[in-house]
């Protein structure tokens, strides 16, 4: 597939993927497979008993690190998406203003 400044050939990628998948599967099969069931299968919680409820990390604080470092950006975004319809239309009027000045004065 030719693009403007590059190319992409699916068939090479697929043949390489299949061959290499087979090689890696061979490498993996060298290792040992068996293990004792029972307590060895519990997840490692620094030795404590596993609690009953299913998952420990709620989905909203999953990217805490990223949100924390972009705190100012996200607080601005929360203010923008606050669900008040008049805010939405306010943004619409601003865009009309920009487009009209842009199109009439022909700024490229």
């Amino acid at each position: 597939m030719e693009t403007y400044a590059g190319f992409w050939h699916v068939e090479w990628f697929l043949t390489a993927f299949i061959i290499l998948f087979f090689i890696t599967w061979l490498i993996k099969s060298l290792g040992d497979k068996k293990y004792k069931s029972g307590i060895q299968e519990d997840i490692f919680l620094s030795g404590h008993q596993e609690k009953e409820y299913s998952d420990y990390i709620g989905s909203e604080n999953l990217y805490w690190g990223f949100k924390e470092s972009l705190r100012r950006y996200y607080s601005l975004m929360k203010k923008m998406h606050n669900g008040i319809i008049s805010e939405y239309i306010f943004w619409f009027y601003i865009s009309i203003l920009i487009v009209l000045t842009f199109i009439t004065f022909g700024v490229i």
């Binding site: 998406h81 669900g83 805010e87 939405y88 943004w91 865009s95 009309i96 009209l100 199109i103 009439t104």
Partner: peptide, 19 residues
Amino acid sequence: LGFMVVSLFLKSGIAPMHM
């Protein structure tokens, strides 16, 4: 054309009017 196109921008949710 400006009016026509911007109102369609709003309907297809382009950035400043996407909320």
